[in-house]
Design a binder for these strands. Structure first.
Length: 377
DNA sequence: GTTATTTGACCCAA
DNA sequence: TTGGGTCAAATAAC
């Protein structure tokens, strides 16, 4: 087993070096002008690296877990190769420059179960118009098994549904309820993920110009960063919001210096346990991730929906949230004077080489009301 | 009666 | 010609 461990560690080193291969970066730059982003490939590579890290941690531990990790690495690698071969870089649009995000994006749209899925990458045959300007995020269902994603704080009216070639689930088309009365041009497309029916890919087009806002939307300070608004509203369905311990002037922000991991199997009942942003490592079995449905600053434990997730599922879910948050906050914010920079230092998502990416400006947000929390049962 | 959803038809870029 | 996106009449829900 020591030989095997040594061999695996060697492979890990190779994978790490490959990920930093300048040729790869150059190739992505070549494709940058075609499709608007190489983020997806970087995302997949980051995903691979993360899986390798986990494999590294668990070497010598559970053989089953190592096997699972190896399978996930294989699947993600295959998909990345497929992307490169097809020249398809249909990742979400890179955030605008100027917010310290010039380095590769971190998981703009990671597929939470991408590691679980063995589905090879398929080139997207969508027409060009549908690729322009869309901001894609992946969200969980409102409740486990629900047939729609969690409420994003906006009022939508469904105007169509289509079966999409190669997709297991139809795509639903929504427009803002106030399109006719106020000329609001915001639309969104919702499609259940093939890999996991509990997840939905949501693509937002256009910005809300309507004035009807729910309490969730009202948390966003008026006049600030409207471009990020809809994304933040989408995040509102997945982020726990709390007010204690955060101040706009404080430079401490919140940082997770311990590796992200999950505690032992879920206990009976759905009551959220003690609030703890990050847990100590333990058995990666079932866990619960809080899924509050509102951005209202309320105690984190009230009114939260919970859904059962696998550790990898939950981890990717959080990566999606954070990356969307980063993208949202990187958009130019008008009228903001105080810039507060917070640093994410979570080993599960980023590493030192991507530190620049992890310093993001949250001045556009109500920093008193944002936090990402994980409830473990 | 009003509003939202469903669904087949249509449009049009690829 | 194909297939994604939208329209609009029919239907359902409130």
């Amino acid at each position: 087993t020591s030989d095997l461990t040594f061999a695996l560690r060697n492979q890990i080193g190779i994978l790490h070096r490959r990920e930093r291969n300048p040729e790869q970066i150059e190739m992505e730059a070549v494709h940058e002008g075609n499709g608007g982003g190489s983020g997806l490939v970087v995302t997949e590579l980051s995903h691979i690296k993360e899986l390798v890290k986990q494999l590294d941690v668990h070497l010598g531990g559970s053989p089953d877990l190592c096997k699972l990790l190896a399978q996930q690495i294989f699947a993600v690698t295959e998909r990345s190769i497929g992307m490169i071969r097809s020249g398809h870089f249909n990742g979400p649009k890179r955030p605008a420059a100027g917010a310290g995000l010039d380095s590769p994006p971190l998981s703009p749209t990671p597929s939470p179960l991408s590691g679980v899925s063995n589905t090879p990458f398929k080139p997207n045959k969508k027409r060009k118009t549908s690729e322009k300007g869309g901001r894609q995020i992946r969200v969980s269902s409102a409740a486990g098994g629900a047939d729609a994603p969690a409420d994003d704080g906006r009022s939508w009216r469904k105007y169509g549904q289509k079966d999409i070639l190669g997709a297991q689930h139809p795509r639903a088309y929504y427009r803002c309820t106030y399109q006719k009365t106020q000329g609001c041009a915001a639309t969104k497309q919702v499609q259940r993920a093939d890999e996991d029916p509990a997840l939905f890919d949501v693509i937002y087009h256009g910005e809300h110009t309507c004035v009807h806002k729910t309490a969730a939307a009202a948390v966003q300070p008026a006049g600030q960063n409207p471009g990020a608004e809809s994304l933040l509203q989408s995040l509102s369905s997945s982020l726990t919001v709390k007010t204690e311990g955060l101040t706009a002037a404080g430079a401490q922000g919140w940082s997770a210096t311990t590796p992200f991991s999950f505690s032992s199997p879920a206990v009976s009942g759905m009551t959220p346990p003690e609030h703890h942003p990050f847990s100590t490592p333990s058995t990666p079995e079932n866990c619960f991730v809080s899924m509050p449905t509102s951005l209202e600053p309320s105690p984190a434990t009230s009114g939260s929906n919970h859904m059962c997730m696998t550790p990898f599922h939950a981890q990717s879910e959080l990566q999606t949230m954070v990356s969307a948050l980063v993208e949202a906050t990187s958009m130019p914010a008008a009228g903001t004077e105080e810039a507060a920079f917070y640093t994410f230092q979570s080993d599960w998502s980023f590493d030192d080489s991507a530190l620049d990416v992890n310093n993001f400006d949250v001045s556009a947000l109500d920093v008193n009301n944002f936090d990402v929390s994980v409830f473990l049962a």
